[in-house]
Computed example of a mutant assay.
Amino acid sequence: MRPIPICSLVLLLLCAHLQACPTACRCTNPASILTMDCSDGGLLTLPQGIPRDVEVLILKSNLLDHLPKSAFQNFTKLQALHLQKNKLESIEEDLFAPLSELTSLYLYSNHLAHLPDGIFQPLHKLERLFLSSNKLSSFSDALFSPLPRLKTLNLAHNKLESLSPDSFLHLQSLTVLSLSSNSLLSLPPGLFRGLVSLSVCALYDNQLTHIPDVLFQGLHNLSWLTLANNSLQQLPQGLLRQPGLQHLYLYNNKLRTIKTEGMEDPTQLKTVDLRGNQLETLPAGTFKNSPDLKTIRLQGNPWRCDCNIRYLQRWLTRNRELIKDRPLCETPPAVHGQPLTDIPEAYFSHC
């Protein structure tokens, strides 16, 4: 008997995997990564017959409300686990214990109100963790500490009201953090210490009234920051001069003034969005030394068009291509509703 070529053996093994695929699922092998997709199947429990060497397991959009701690004990090669859009209310502490190769975990859009302290302890290779759209109101300082390789953490759309200074202490690889759409009233000064790789930080749609001056200090890789849809009345000192910051979104707050400290320092800002605040003027030099600026939005502020706004009016007139909206004068009555860039120079002749 002639020996079976190696390529034929590989094909036979692949076919065996596909034949073993549970009825409610679709099994594929793109780029030699065994993937089992059981999404949108109305599943109440894990399907029987999942291949032991599955590497990507997609169980999203089902009706799973509980998983026994032995659910994944045979799937030690699993790299990505999709459990989003189910009805999970709690998770056993040892559920992920066998998954030491896991790099991506999707748990968003469930009903999780609590996570056991050691739930992520075995996941030393985890890089992406999505926990948004759950019911988390708090978590322990130890929850994320076993995840030194974590790069993306999404906690948006939960019920967080406060955070400990040590919440993210050991996440030195973290590049993307979202805490948006929670109920945060304040942030402790040391919350982001040690996050040396952080480049994207989303804090929009909370109830923040104050940001500590030191909150973003040392985050030299931070390039994208949104604090929009809060109740901030002033910015932390030096935020417009934050080293490396390129995109800053501050719309829909209650900002009345912008601090002028450090105006001589150069910036790398490309986008500044100040729409929908309570600004009446901006101090001279606000956008000085910002050669990379490409987009600025200022509409929806009650601009007081008197002598104090002359710097801003002149700067806007010289840089019309950067203005992506039409900031209007609120007062005095003589220029009410008039675009700042349309005010003639003669108007300031008495200044």
Results as ranks from 00 to 15, higher is better:
residue 39 S to E: 08
residue 279 L to W: 00
residue 153 L to D: 00
residue 110 N to T: 15
residue 113 A to E: 14
residue 26 R to P: 00
residue 18 L to A: 13
residue 126 L to P: 01
residue 40 D to M: 05
residue 314 R to K: 15
residue 191 L to N: 03
residue 258 I to V: 15
residue 235 L to Q: 02
residue 92 E to G: 15
residue 254 K to I: 05
residue 294 K to F: 01
residue 99 L to F: 03
residue 214 V to P: 00
residue 3 P to M: 15
residue 66 H to L: 10
residue 22 P to A: 12
residue 147 L to C: 07
residue 174 L to I: 09
residue 195 L to V: 12
residue 124 H to I: 15
residue 174 L to R: 04
residue 316 L to V: 09
residue 227 L to E: 02
residue 293 L to R: 02
residue 7 C to H: 13
residue 200 V to E: 14
residue 285 G to W: 01
residue 207 Q to H: 08
residue 171 L to E: 00
residue 113 A to H: 05
residue 120 F to I: 14
residue 162 S to F: 01
residue 266 P to A: 12
residue 67 L to P: 00
residue 347 Y to G: 07
residue 339 P to Q: 07
residue 185 L to Q: 15
residue 100 S to N: 10
residue 14 L to C: 12
residue 142 A to N: 09
residue 110 N to Y: 02
residue 24 A to K: 06
residue 219 L to V: 10
residue 134 N to A: 10
residue 272 V to F: 10
residue 64 L to E: 01
residue 202 A to Q: 05
residue 349 S to N: 09
residue 302 P to K: 06
residue 218 G to K: 02
residue 26 R to Q: 12
residue 51 P to I: 09
residue 24 A to N: 03
residue 248 L to S: 08
residue 209 T to R: 08
residue 15 C to A: 13
residue 333 P to I: 14
residue 149 R to I: 15
residue 310 R to T: 13
residue 150 L to I: 14
residue 271 T to H: 07
residue 212 P to C: 15
residue 28 T to H: 01
residue 151 K to M: 08
residue 191 L to G: 06
residue 137 S to L: 02
residue 168 F to S: 11
residue 126 L to S: 00
residue 69 K to F: 01
residue 100 S to R: 09
residue 173 S to T: 13
residue 125 K to S: 14
residue 41 G to H: 03
residue 41 G to W: 00
